[in-house]
Simulated scan of single mutants.
Amino acid sequence: MSDFSEELKGPVTDDEVETSVLTGAGMHFPWLQTYVETVAIGGKRKKDFAQTTSACLSFVQEALLKHQWQQAAEYMYSYFQTLEDSDSYKRQAAPEIIWKLGSEILFYHPKSNVETFSTFADRMKNIGVMNYLKISLQHALYLLHHGMLNDAKRNLSEAETWRHGENTSSRGILINLIQAYKGLLQYYTWSKKKMELSKLDKDDYAYNAVAQDVFNHSWKTSANISALIKIPGVWDPFVKSYVEMLEFYGDRDGAQEVLTNYAYDEKFPSNPNAHIYLYNFLKRQKAPRSKMISVLKMGSSSCRKARAPTDSTLW
């Protein structure tokens, strides 16, 4: 097996350009196509399993713990063999493991960039179809981290239409998350449109068009976020965005209902922020002082619960 370190750093020949990925940063990843694509089309290669894949996995994990990104990448080159392992369990588990470790390496590797990460993500979506939604969501979050909002939104839209696999509860939650993050991006656009609207006079010829645009974005955002925040969990940015839009359109009862459920529904985990959001809302509505103090007391109690040690920590 060729030395991955040399291939990573070495120059690329004309013949290699067609079967490798070369990023603007000069990071050479022949394994992205030479190995990943080969498996994707069902190709077979003779592998040297003298060094077991389990040993490679341990080396990768150790290198990650030590932040040795280049060394981790070299071991990943060998671990790709497990995609053709005769052990069906290892073969089926491999795509998710490769994605988790590979994405971690590419996120921190000094010579990696968005193009390299995106190429890897797209390949892994095709290989690990069972993890398509999860990879798509994480890919979108990576793009968001780099300020690529349109690309992130496109990824989320593609994932939203994915119809393969069984309809399990975990799949349903993933789809809700994907839709909610898409809604969060739409909320960002809505906020900008709302700011634009605030600068226009109602008599301005462009006012009605912008107002309609603002409404359209709010409707899309609400539809994408509302399903997620009904599922028990901590959804602070989604709840805040949703409530802001409800308030903007004068639905104060709806906003209070959302915040009250988020703070007091026992199915949701303890979350002091939920009580703070409700308190701030009541303050804006000039609610009775006694009611606001009651919310703060409940928030303080929730904070203590969140900090309390669990049985496992006591032992």
Rank of each mutant, 00 (worst) to 15 (best):
E6C: 05
L8R: 05
P11S: 09
P11L: 02
E18G: 13
S20C: 05
L22H: 03
G24Q: 06
G26E: 08
F29A: 01
L32G: 00
Q33S: 04
Q33C: 00
A40F: 04
I41L: 14
K44Y: 11
R45E: 00
D48G: 10
C56Q: 02
L64E: 05
Q68F: 06
Q71A: 04
Q71C: 04
E74V: 01
M76D: 02
Q81E: 12
T82V: 14
P95S: 04
E96V: 07
I97F: 06
S103I: 08
S103R: 15
H109C: 10
V114N: 12
S118I: 10
M124L: 15
N126P: 02
I127W: 07
Y142S: 05
G147A: 12
L149H: 11
E158I: 12
A159E: 01
T161E: 12
W162Q: 00
H164P: 01
E166L: 00
E166N: 00
E166T: 00
E166P: 03
T168L: 00
S170K: 02
I173T: 15
I173N: 14
I178H: 01
K182E: 06
L184F: 12
Y188W: 11
T189V: 14
L200Y: 07
D203K: 15
Y205F: 06
Y205W: 08
N216F: 09
N224L: 14
K230R: 15
K240I: 14
S241Q: 13
Y242M: 14
Y242D: 13
Y249D: 06
G250M: 11
D251P: 11
N261F: 11
Y262G: 02
Y262S: 03
E266V: 10
E266Y: 09
K267F: 05
S270Q: 01
H275N: 12
Y277T: 07
S290G: 07
I293N: 03
S294I: 01
S294N: 07
M298R: 00
M298A: 02
M298W: 03
G299D: 01
K305S: 11
A308F: 15
P309M: 13
T313S: 15
